[in-house]
Amino acid sequence: MPKVTIDGHEIEVPKGTTILQAARMIGPEVAPPAMCYYTKLKTSGGYCRTCIVKVTKGSAQNPNPMPKPVASCRTEVMDGMEVVNFTSPEVLEARKGVVEFLLINHPLDCPVCDQAGECHLQDLGYEHGAAKTRYDFERRTFEKIDIGDKIQLHMTRCILCYRCVKTADQITDGRVHGVINRGDVAEISTYIENAIDNDFSGNVIDVCPVGALTDKTFRFKSRVWFTKPVDAHRHCDKCSGKVRLWFKGSEVLRVTARKDQWGEVEDWICNTCRFDKKQLSDWTVEGPSRIDRHSVISQGHYELAKLKLDTGKKLKELHGGK
């Protein structure tokens, strides 16, 4: 099995593992951010360039460094490879550039965007971007498009990650949406604005890293950090039925798939579970969802209740000793 060293951490991984996957196995402290790569979607990744890293040693046989930064999500590890990510100022600078490129045409309408609070672009901009933009031209805008009666596409916010295209291609039958036009006027669109009519079409909302594809049954209902997530399941003959319910008071505001540490869904869910089952009586609740404590959503304070902590001491720990 090939051994790879990322930012000084060595790990042995199965053949065919990409640098990004290997970095995720080590942990979030070395894992590069990814905006377009999605583990569950074949051929995803390589587009956004946020996960670029520098390969300082190609492999044991060929110790030369790779001449250009590579997309870690699409580059397989070789035995003896050495990679630098957060330890390389060059990589950080390049990534900062990518973030700036992704943001120059983004409307930054977070105050009215339903994705705010769970938006990967927000996190990316906060963690890897610059505080100010140097772009002072008019931003690209599009009209909002309804894709079916439950999903709205707001291309203005899109970063063209192609995740929804791959989802529609691989999860649903008879794909009718893709990318039209090219360059900086390329847009995700349905074929002559056809509605996506498919049992699994709602998953494009979950894979969207930004607020370009939103759930119309949830639009403008609440900020996500005011809702409380719990894991629940029901017997469903179309999908696994394992979901996350987002409560406000006793009302289920929305249903999404469960997401893992990297913001990727664990199981695809069907549209019936997502859009039609909004009563608590439809579900068997398992318990509060685990949310990363850095997320604004975690201000629901479930961590404390769940871990039965000695409040004073553990609170201190929980907030990094502050």
């Binding site: 956004c48 490129f101 063209l160 090219r182 900086d184």
Partner: peptide
Amino acid sequence: ESCGQCSPCRE
């Protein structure tokens, strides 16, 4: 002529 796939070139 940019195809619009990857962000640095597209933007």
